[in-house]
Lab assay of single mutants.
Amino acid sequence: MFYPNSPQTSPQLTQIPYGQQYAMMQRQIQQPYHPFATTEPQARLYPYHYQGPIQQEQGGFITQQSTAASPQYVQMRVTPVDQSIMSGYPNQTANGSSSSSFNYNIHPQQQQQQQQQQQQLRHHAMPVGSVPLQDDRYRKQLIVNYLAPDVTSTDLHELFSRFGELDGARIIYDKQTNMSKGYGFVYFCHAEDAKEAVERMSGYEFHGKWLKVGYSTNPLNIVPSNSSPYVHAGSRGAAG
């Protein structure tokens, strides 16, 4: 039997160049792979992502010199942007860049009308829970959420009447099932009393439920100042 490094198959040491006398086997001759043993700084910083320098080929596509990437890492192929796409944008300079302001050559009167329309939209648009300043009635009506099913309009009136005089209180019921929808409205005579009720009743436990109280901004629920107070009856038909 002959071994790869046996004296019968191995040459004389004098015939082997210096430095390879003890590297006779194939696994010894093959050098191990060192990912950080390279002179390129990109490979030292990113050993798993770097795959060699990027070269520009004919046709405008950018390719990489090395083989496919590892399945664990996804390499994105980048193509140059066609400058003709950006030619339609206004205020574009000769080098292809555009300024931040756009001039669509709008007539001054049209621009003024658009600004007025935007101001009107901001004036009428009102986020949930906010209180408008032009109508004091919005500051007097509250919406009470997360009410228990057994709470009546009379219970709601008695709960909030300790903060001040009320114009009314009612629970909203479903017309088909005649069941409470879980929320109601309270109408105060003074805005200061309503503000105190919002601050003190939010998070209050009532009939096993934690109440959420806020201003009601729905104009359909506003009680006119010259109208008669609501009837605080315990029956659902009268309260709904």
Rank of each mutant, 00 (worst) to 15 (best):
Q15T: 09
W210Q: 02
C189W: 13
G208W: 02
F163G: 01
Q20I: 03
Y3H: 13
F185N: 00
K175L: 04
H34N: 11
T14K: 15
Q8N: 09
Q15P: 10
T14A: 10
P80C: 14
D82Y: 09
K140Q: 08
R137K: 03
M126K: 10
T79R: 14
F36L: 07
I29D: 07
Q30V: 06
P4A: 12
Q109H: 08
D155F: 05
Q113V: 10
Q117P: 08
P41N: 07
R77G: 10
Y73C: 13
R162V: 15
A148Q: 13
R77N: 03
S97A: 06
F185W: 01
Q56I: 03
H232T: 09
S227C: 13
K175Y: 03
G60N: 12
H49K: 15
Q8H: 11
A239M: 07
H207F: 15
Y18N: 12
K181W: 01
S202G: 08
Q30S: 11
M179V: 10
I29Q: 06
F188C: 01
G59H: 05
G96D: 13
Y73H: 14
S100G: 10
Y173S: 07
I85N: 13
G184S: 00
Y50C: 12
Q112F: 11
P108D: 06
Q51N: 10
E196C: 12
Y215Q: 00
G88R: 12
Q113D: 05
T63L: 03
V223M: 05
R236Q: 08
P229S: 07
S84D: 05
M201P: 00
K195N: 12
T9Y: 04
Y104Q: 10
S100P: 11
D167F: 03
P219S: 01
Q64E: 06
M126P: 08
Q112I: 06
N95L: 05
Q26M: 03
S66N: 10
P149W: 15
Q28S: 06
P47F: 01
S216Y: 08
D155A: 07
Q117M: 10
Q109T: 12
Q56H: 11
Q115T: 09
G96W: 10
E192P: 06
Q58Y: 11
S66T: 07
L45D: 14
T217C: 04
P229E: 05
Q64C: 04
F61D: 12
M25F: 05
Y33A: 13
S6C: 06
F206N: 01
T217N: 09
S6W: 05
Q118R: 13
D155K: 05
I171D: 00
C189P: 00
Q65I: 02
K212Y: 01
Y46C: 08
F160G: 00
Q42D: 08
G182A: 12
Y187S: 01
Q20D: 08
A43N: 09
V74Q: 13
N221W: 15
F102Q: 08
S216T: 13
A197N: 01
S10K: 14
F160Q: 01
Y173K: 09
A194M: 00
I171F: 00
Q26L: 02
S101P: 12
V78F: 06
E199V: 14
Q26W: 06
T14N: 09
S10Q: 06
Q21K: 14
P108G: 12
A37D: 11
V213T: 05
V74S: 13
I106A: 09
A37C: 08
S225D: 05
N103G: 11
G129W: 13
Q30D: 15
Q30N: 04
V128I: 12
S130C: 12
I222P: 02
P219D: 00
D193G: 13
F102N: 07
N91L: 07
V78N: 15
Q26A: 13
Y73D: 12
N95E: 04
T217Y: 02
G59E: 07
A197Q: 00
T38I: 07
Q15I: 02
G184I: 01
